[in-house]
């Protein structure tokens, strides 16, 4: 079943067209990887799934982008409600300069949860899901900035999970991390797809091959090919995809 379905999506930064006629379905409770050379539009596409592109002046979007049958670019759509259902993890870990606890509790608090007991529960559960609980349970009130890069990124994942989103968008979540931290996050992603629909932008083809079920190959703002990861890496239909995945590109 498609969680998100995109049809003929076009996106412009002023006069520059960053996305051209994107048509793509994202399956529920699977990991979809977006790959392609830098500047190909994969991050832009990811950010249009929770309307983070709205923050940039002069962005124009045309086309259909549906989350379970609801067009998210309709005028009367509440972006706040949308972002609560579609969480996001950024390229560079960006914890707030607050305690570990407060970082995770930030979303639920905004959502109106006030009692300490409920918050405690959510924080613990989210940190456990992000495989960070054991490492930080004794220092929840310490600043999140004291964590290592990998821990910070898992904290950011926990922070997103605390909102109980349905979809989790990840924008090159491991690009700022070392191999060990990367491996931990990848493990986590595989674990998380049991409950969440995950879309991940990555520039590492090995990563896409390791963790994703579906892969979409972006080039110059277009989707060249989208299929199961298996097929993309073994029997690509398009010559350009083949060149890219075999490393013969550019």
């Amino acid at each position: 079943m498609s969680k998100i379905s995109v049809k003929d999506l076009n996106l412009f930064y002023g006069d520059f067209q960053a996305l051209k006629n994107i048509t793509l379905n994202i399956e529920e409770k699977k990991v979809t990887a977006l790959i392609g050379p830098s500047g190909c539009g994969k991050s832009t596409f990811l950010r249009s799934l929770n309307r983070m592109n709205d923050l940039i002046d002069g962005v124009k979007i045309k086309g259909d982008l549906k989350l379970e049958e609801q067009d998210i670019y309709q005028k009367d759509v509440d972006v706040v409600a949308l972002r609560r259902r579609v969480g996001m993890v950024f390229q560079k870990p960006n914890p707030f300069p607050k305690s570990i606890y407060e970082n995770v509790a930030y979303g639920p608090r905004r959502y109106g949860i006030k009692t300490r007991k409920q918050l405690d529960e959510i924080v613990e559960k989210s940190l456990k899901k992000a495989a960070l609980w054991e490492e930080v349970k004794d220092r929840l009130s310490k600043s999140a900035l004291g964590l290592s890069g990998g821990q910070q990124q898992r904290l950011c994942i926990a922070r997103a999970l605390a909102m109980e989103p349905e979809v989790l968008l990840m924008d090159e979540p491991t690009s700022a991390l070392d191999p060990i931290a990367t491996a931990k996050i990848e493990e986590l992603i595989v674990e998380l797809k049991k409950e969440y629909t995950i879309v991940i932008v990555t520039h590492s083809m090995q990563q896409a091959a390791r963790i994703s079920d579906e892969t979409a190959f972006f080039l110059m703002g277009e989707v060249v090919e989208v299929d199961t990861t298996q097929k993309i890496f073994t029997k690509p239909r398009d010559k350009r995809t083949e060149d890219y995945v075999t490393g013969r590109f550019g």
């Binding site: 379970e68 309709q74 509440d78 109980e164």
Partner: peptide, 20 residues
């Protein structure tokens, strides 16, 4: 339990009272 805590509005339409 989770459902109890977070009832995401499935409908994404803006809530007049809330956004006023």
């Amino acid at each position: 339990v989770t459902q109890d805590k977070f009832t995401h509005r499935k409908n994404l339409k803006k809530d007049i009272k809330h956004s006023l």
